[in-house]
């Protein structure tokens, strides 16, 4: 049993870098996929709808940029 464990450890030791190597490519890759297939299309979609989620635009018509707030903060949730 002990030898088996040691063997596994040895194997793990050699596999680990391989895993890390794959991981190093895989995680940015999947992130990139999300970016190109979700983030960018959503952005374009919003632009088509003329929606400004972050309120980036400068507006001559508005006379204030204050956003009024009614709801009280809660303490239970992370959102």
């Amino acid at each position: 049993m002990r030898y088996f464990k040691r063997l596994l450890k040895k194997i793990f030791k050699y596999i680990q870098p391989v895993g890390r190597f794959i991981g190093r490519f895989l995680s940015p890759l999947s992130l990139l996929l999300v970016y190109f297939f979700i983030v960018i299309p959503t952005g374009i979609f919003l632009k088509l709808l003329n929606k400004d989620a972050l309120n980036i635009k400068i507006s001559k018509k508005k006379n204030t940029y204050w956003i009024s707030r009614k709801e009280e903060p809660n303490f239970e949730e992370q959102f």
Partner: peptide, 16 residues
């Protein structure tokens, strides 16, 4: 996320 969506594709480096 709102920022990335609004500015896409400008924020890709920060996103990654």
């Amino acid at each position: 996320m709102d920022t990335y969506v609004s500015f896409a594709p400008r924020g890709i480096r920060s996103y990654l």
